[in-house]
Structures are given as C-alpha cells and as structure tokens.
Design a protein around this nucleic acid. Sequence first.
DNA 1: ATGTTTGCAAATCTTTTGCACACTT
DNA 2: AAGTGTGCAAAAGATTTGCAAACAT
Lengths: 135, 135
Amino acid sequence: MKQKKTRRMTVQAEATLEELRKLKTHPTAEELHNILRKRLPKVSLGTVYRNLKMMVREGEALRLVQPDGEARFDGCVDVHYHIRCRSCGRLDDVEMKPLTRIEPRLQEQSGWLVEGHSLEFEGICPRCLSMGGVC
Amino acid sequence: MKQKKTRRMTVQAEATLEELRKLKTHPTAEELHNILRKRLPKVSLGTVYRNLKMMVREGEALRLVQPDGEARFDGCVDVHYHIRCRSCGRLDDVEMKPLTRIEPRLQEQSGWLVEGHSLEFEGICPRCLSMGGVC
DNA sequence: ATGTTTGCAAATCTTTTGCACACTT
DNA sequence: AAGTGTGCAAAAGATTTGCAAACAT
C-alpha cells in the first residue's frame, strides 16, 4: 500500500508562503530567497524552489514564466492579469475584470476542453516613461 | 563611426526561416535543429539558436515560452493566440479574432504605454480527450 | 579584402536531485 | 519511531559565448 505523504508545516515552508503573499512584486525564486534569508539565514535556494513547486502544485501560488525563461511567482491565485515593462522588466498586476466569455466560446468551436487562460500585456511602465523609456 | 552590421543570407539562416514558416507545430530549437539536419547535416544547434534570436529581434518570428521555461518558435508573426494541452504539451493556434479594445482601455486607466498583449489558453486537446486525457 | 556567420566546445544560468542529517508528526 | 523536509553540492537542461576557420558581400 501507499505511504501517507502528509504535508509538514516547517518554518521554511511557512515563511516562504508568508513572504510571497506579502510581496506584490512577483519575485523570482532568487529574489524570494534573498528576502527569506533575513528571517532564516541558512535557508537554501533549493528549499525555496522545492517549496514553491509544492505551493504551485497545491494551488497556493502561481508560476509565471518571463520571456527569458526565468520564473516569477505570485501569491495571489485569483484570476487576474499582468503587464510587463519592456524597458525594466517589472511585472505588475492589471486592473481589469476577468474575461468570462471567451473560454466557453472557444470550447464550442474548437473541440478542446478549455480549462483556463492567461493574458499578459506588455509596454512601458510609468516610471520608465518619465525617464525617457530607460530605467 | 559605427560598422554597417549588414545581415548576410547564409544557407543556414535561409533554411531556418523557411522550415520554421513551413511548420505549424511551434517547434523548440532542438526540434527545428533536427529537421534542419535533414537538409544541412552539419548545422549546429548553436547556429539555430543564433538565427532564431536574430529572427525574433527582426520581427520575423515569435518566441513563446512554455511553463517549463523551454521556448517554442512561431514563424507566423500576425497577432494570434494559442492553446496548450495540459496533457501532451502540444501548442495549437486558436481561431479567434484579436481583441482590439482591451489595450487602449487599459492604457487610459493605467498610466502605462501599452504596446501589445498575449493570450494563451490551456486545456485538453481533442486527441487526449479521446484517449481519456492521457496521450 | 572585410567583416559576419559558422561549428565546436566550454561556459552560463536556472532549476532539479541525491544524500545524510534534522525535524515534524 | 517513521518518514518528510532541509542544506549542501553536484547534476541536468536550455541557451549563450569565445574562438579560429569558412563564407557572403
């Protein structure tokens, strides 16, 4: 028979989820690691990755891939959209209510079972605009 | 003064663009490399990457990042959307006309200069559906 | 002739994994 | 006590880069 595979609440896992939820900057694993080190000086990057992966699997966090392939993480799992700055790379949330009609419509005419969508904008952020597009 | 930096049309670059445009499967660099080898047995993966990067920079191809961070390339640069199968990973084009109203609307109320968007659906493809979700 | 592109291999970068030990339950 | 999570370092996978030779202009 199978093992129980019960999930344990360690200080590392707890702190990771907590800090991620606190941040609104969609940090990379490494950025989050640096922040966590202030509380837990010996926490390893590998552990951060392991816990982030668990959190994503359990639906407690989102994993967002950047154009360069690096991942950013989001502690808010409600459906929402993002916008990325082409100049400085920052990733912000967007104030826009979720599109609810497109999924059923696509499902009808496509033959796919449509289970979700992600929408990401790109452009230049206010800060970079005020600095002439370079920041 | 600056160099000219003229782009040269080598057989490798030409074949890469040609094969990519022919394919509708959004291949990875490695998949494309394998296809190219049939025509150019000694073409290197590095060269494929270099040419793909140029093509993306010049607006001749799109680079699409997958959840695992690996990139897929698309020789069609018209605005269009994709859908990814959660089961087998395939990435198809979607028949849907581009959303034209969301960008200006977002720009007005956000303070960003909005220059583009990408929309990607996910679900289960017809083939996986017919095989019980596993293919 | 000049300067860009190539093939090769080594280097880089992000993420994963094996292992022995610590810790949660 | 049983078995999961951790830290560390090594491994893996994708992409980039340095270099000398080949090639396009």
